[in-house]
């Protein structure tokens, strides 16, 4: 089991490395080679990782989130999936390097962690409901992170044009409108995933019985704030044409809120740990 898992982790790291090279070549418009197969490579990587996650889930009877390596690998996976959704929706590949690079870094750390730890080092074994809750949270937070990347790219390009800096960044980036559109797609993914996370969390709370945990806990309140922020963005875009610079700032703000939640969950005692 561990051998299969470790092999998969190493193969995935190699694939993510190739993805970074492929998308970097697309960004610099170096055609041929890996740039030509970037999308099939991305689909292949995501598929292999999904198969690996499902296999581990099936064998362990729970979502594979027993240790830090598995957590990081899952975050890398959700970033890659979110980016794949974006790429397929709008057929824009020039920003791929900004998405697959963080995924590669996380996967690489996961690999080092896996290869360096004893085979039997385990962690908490999550039940089915908790697994879904955690998985949805990871997808949502990855989408929030990716959205903030698009937000920052938008703001940098906006400033470049405003100040008349027509260098490399200006030439290589897609249009402001495209970046805004990419950001909106990611915002939708984030909103859906946070809704599922919060919904499952609430259900578990109700099943656990009143008083088990407080709904006024900081991480719950911050998650609610994040949900409101992204839900507000989606509605404002659909009904009032909200987007561009304001959406960019909102997604950067969303990243800060998300970091607050993660800090609360991982570094201070609460109902999660």
């Amino acid at each position: 089991m561990d051998t299969v898992s470790n092999t998969a982790v190493v193969i995935l790291t190699v694939l993510y490395t190739l993805l970074v090279i492929a998308y970097a070549r697309i960004f610099t418009r170096s055609h041929g080679g890996l740039a030509e197969i970037a999308r099939p490579l991305l689909v292949g990587t995501v598929s292999l990782q999904l198969a690996s996650i499902l296999l581990r889930s099936f064998m362990a009877g729970a979502c594979p989130l027993n240790n830090r390596a598995e957590f990081l690998s899952l975050v890398a996976f959700s970033i890659a999936v979110t980016y794949l959704i974006v790429e397929l929706s709008i057929d824009e590949r020039s920003t791929g390097v900004f998405a697959v690079t963080p995924a590669f870094v996380l996967q690489a750390i996961a690999t080092v962690d896996v290869l360096g730890r004893p085979a039997d080092s385990g962690g908490r074994k999550l039940g089915l409901l908790d697994s879904f809750h955690t998985f949805a949270a990871i997808v949502g937070f990855s989408a929030v992170a990716l959205g903030s990347v698009y937000g920052i790219l938008y703001l940098v390009l906006y400033t470049s044009i405003k100040r008349g800096r027509f260098g490399l960044f200006y030439r290589k980036m897609p249009s402001l409108e495209t970046l805004s559109e990419l950001n909106f797609i990611v915002t939708c993914v984030a909103f859906l995933a946070i809704t599922v996370t919060a919904g499952l969390g609430l259900w578990r709370y109700l099943r656990a019985g009143e008083g088990a945990v407080s709904l006024f806990h900081a991480e719950v309140l911050l998650t609610f704030l994040l949900w409101l922020l992204y839900g507000g963005c989606v509605l404002a875009k659909l009904f009032f044409g909200f987007g561009g610079k304001r959406l960019a700032y909102t997604t950067v703000l969303g990243l800060l809120v998300m970091m607050g939640i993660l800090l609360k969950v991982f570094f201070t005692p609460g109902f999660h740990f």
Partner: peptide, 8 residues
């Protein structure tokens, strides 16, 4: 070109 960079 500039217009396309802003509006697509």
């Amino acid at each position: 070109e500039l217009a396309r960079k802003i509006f697509g």
